[in-house]
């Protein structure tokens, strides 16, 4: 996969906006700094970090840690400290979600290629994939991870939010100016642009694409969204969403189109949005219990 290694820096009023592409998303960094060279430096740090994480955890690069784990063919793979932390987190999320959030469930996409097919997969195909899903089948004893042959993992459900938080962490270490990091709608900021003004962020409504339907204000913390309204399939008159249940192999019934959650950091917000999505029709009641601010589009 070719990576576009370009960055672009423009001035918008008293705010510098840096843009680049990473993780199949449009990424931007908003910086309330006076100095263009500082803005350029911060943008460079942000892009470098996003690209680093993208490369390190890409499933498409043969030399990535994820590829090494997935091609180990039943052998154990020794992982570095950062990957160990991500694996710890992934296992904790697996437990917390009762097995619904599972970084080994990506293989189900073989049966549910929402973009290219409009037919429902056969039960037999799904049944054949299920034995290869479930973190309880793996052995994780830091720093060694062992997957049964044929099983695969990916950090798709964690990586972008993690990158957003990591990036803000790095930038905050270099400047105490107000900064907002936005990687494809997963957003975190350190503070409002000035003491009395928040960042204004639009949330896309699932039905009305590309229009800031709801405007919300953010002075600190993060927003993350789970859901992609473009991905679904209709078969026999039933609309199947894109969120798959790794335990059954079938789409979660009555899943919302998208869920946005506000929390202290993007990793947490993203995971709550994902967990809620996996609750299907109970998404809202789940989010109510978590006592977080959220927006659900159905």
């Amino acid at each position: 996969m070719a990576i576009d290694r370009q960055t672009q820096l423009v001035s918008q009023g008293d705010c510098w906006v840096g843009r680049f592409s990473a993780m199949a998303s449009d990424c931007e960094v908003l910086m309330h700094v006076n100095d263009e060279s500082l803005a350029g430096k911060l943008l460079n740090v942000a892009a470098t970090e996003a690209w680093r994480i993208e490369q390190k955890y890409s499933r498409y690069r043969e030399d990535s840690i994820v590829s090494r784990i997935n091609s180990a063919d039943g052998e154990s793979t020794e992982v570095d400290a950062e990957t160990a932390q991500l694996l710890d987190f992934a296992f904790q999320c697996y437990e917390l979600s009762g097995g619904l959030f599972d970084i080994s469930s990506g293989i189900l996409k073989q049966a549910w290629p929402f973009s290219s097919s409009s037919t429902q997969p056969s039960h037999a195909l799904i049944e054949s994939l299920l034995p290869l899903i479930g973190l309880e089948k793996t052995q994780w004893l830091a720093p060694y991870l062992t997957l049964p042959a044929g099983m695969q993992i990916d950090f798709g459900g964690i990586g972008k939010e993690y990158a957003v938080d990591r990036t803000l962490g790095l930038l905050s270490g270099l400047s105490d100016a107000p900064i907002l990091v936005n990687f494809g709608g997963d957003i975190v900021c350190n503070k409002g642009p000035s003491s009395d003004s928040p960042w204004r962020i639009g949330i896309e409504d699932a039905e009305i694409q590309d229009e800031a339907q709801q405007l919300l204000e953010l002075t600190s913390g993060a927003l993350a969204t789970s859901g992609n309204t473009k991905r679904y399939l209709i078969s026999n008159g039933i609309r199947y969403g894109h969120v798959l249940n790794p335990i059954t192999g079938w789409p979660i019934e009555a899943a919302p189109l998208s869920i946005t959650v506000a929390e202290g950091n993007c990793t947490r917000a993203g995971m709550l949005a994902t967990f809620a999505m996996l609750q299907g029709e109970n998404a809202e009641s789940f989010l109510d219990q978590q006592e977080v601010k959220y927006w659900v589009a159905r």
């Binding site: 710890d88 987190f89 999320c93 709550l272």
Partner: peptide
Amino acid sequence: PKGKINNLLAVAACSLL
């Protein structure tokens, strides 16, 4: 997942970050 898991998630995310 039943009830409030947000606090546990907060600890997990904090440890990761």
